[in-house]
Nucleic acid binder design. Structure first.
Lengths: 218, 218
DNA sequence: CACAAGCAAGAGCACCGCTCTCGAAAGGCA
DNA sequence: TGCCTTTCGAGAGCGGTGCTCTTGCTTGTG
């Protein structure tokens, strides 16, 4: 099994992915297949043997980027920290990752490509990222966040062991949206005239989130 | 003054802008100058007499979209409502506008075009949108949100009469980020597996924001 | 050894942003 | 009125794009 042919194919696939990532890092999400091809020393039509379409390549990159953010969060997380500080560490890691890899962040959370719908294979990767935050939030479940409809929607997360309570999971999701929104605004330059640099406002946001989620003990 | 020539020029400019908006609404932000030109019955090179570059056209559309969101918020706002409900109305109007005009929302708050920096002429338009929320937040200033550095950054907003206190303005900005983040995630399909439909989570978010901002009286 | 599959290359199609040149129309002025 | 300058639309063209198709070479297999 895994003959030379399969291995070469896998290697070339990986080289294309790496080239695409470099291309996106340097020139943004408007990555061109021809530029990627040039980078790996191929003619553009050859790349289509490995990724049938530009969108397929981007989707593969999205999955990869979720994995990278997941690993960044895993290595930043520290279960020994008190809840509020542990949440803050995850939040700072997310922001730092986004600022370090702007285009990758926007690949995941930015404007969807026209006519693009997140393919199923990205869902578990996205869930892995969210689970870090859900784990911390589970330490101190919030009650009374949302009504029965919302609780019903999120009951699945509790069943899968991703959350301690549906209400707490909802609160965490809302705070995740706040983190994504903050970073989106910062990367988009929307805070330039006001909260710039953005650290103080971000730290205040993290403190507020810890209070809202009841992570500071009590 | 305002001879026939100037008027014709203004009319054609407006027709191009309208065509561009329609094009973006139908095909997303990857609008093409040639498609816009076809829509107004011009050849592509003629469009460049009115907008020297694709980016210039997009910038004009961004300003226009800020204005539209501003008007949507102005017509939804109701100063007679109690603070929490008034905030919720603005939040719902923002979300409704974004869902109705997805591409326009993403033009403003989505992934910046590669190499794109928000031009100065967009700043007042963006401030007008934020001011609606700051006005409501001013009704019940939050204390102790952020430290002296943050207060110093936002002192300008207080001076301009846009906010009652720097601390309150900071809290409002953070909640604005939460709104943008929520809508971004929803439009990007990131809530599909969990809080879908998203209304219940959004309403829970609005309720939490009213509590956080102290808008429910007390 | 012969055959089939896999692959890179190249040409080509329709589209893109943008530039340049040209001719026609339009307004100002003597 | 007649000229002259400015404005503007059209068209061709450049280098780029995503993607397809054909052509041959290579490579592993029966």
């Amino acid at each position: 099994m895994a003959g030379v042919r399969e291995q070469n194919r896998a290697e070339t696939t990986a080289r294309i992915l790496a080239a695409a990532r470099a291309e996106v890092a340097e020139h943004g999400a408007d990555m061109s297949m021809r530029a990627v091809a040039r980078r790996v020393g191929l003619v553009s039509s050859a790349v289509y043997r490995y990724f049938p379409t530009r969108e397929a390549l981007l989707t593969a990159m999205v999955v990869e980027s979720y994995g990278r953010l997941d690993r960044a969060l895993a290595s930043a997380d520290d279960a020994d920290l008190p809840g509020g500080e542990r949440w803050a560490v995850l939040g700072r890691a997310t922001r730092a990752w986004a600022k370090d890899r702007t285009h990758e962040f926007q690949l995941i959370y930015g404007t969807p490509l026209p006519g693009y719908a997140a393919p199923p294979e990205t869902v578990p990767a996205a869930a892995a990222v969210a689970s870090h935050f859900l784990r911390v939030g589970a330490g101190s479940p919030v009650e009374g966040f949302g009504g029965v409809t919302l609780e019903g929607q999120l009951a699945g997360l509790v069943d899968e062991g991703l959350a301690a309570s549906a209400s707490g999971a909802a609160a965490v999701l809302a705070e995740l949206a706040a983190l994504v929104g903050f970073v989106t605004l910062e990367l988009g330059g929307h805070l330039v005239g006001t909260a710039d640099p953005a650290e103080p406002l971000f730290e205040a946001l993290l403190a507020r989130q810890a209070r809202t989620l009841g992570l500071d003990g009590g």
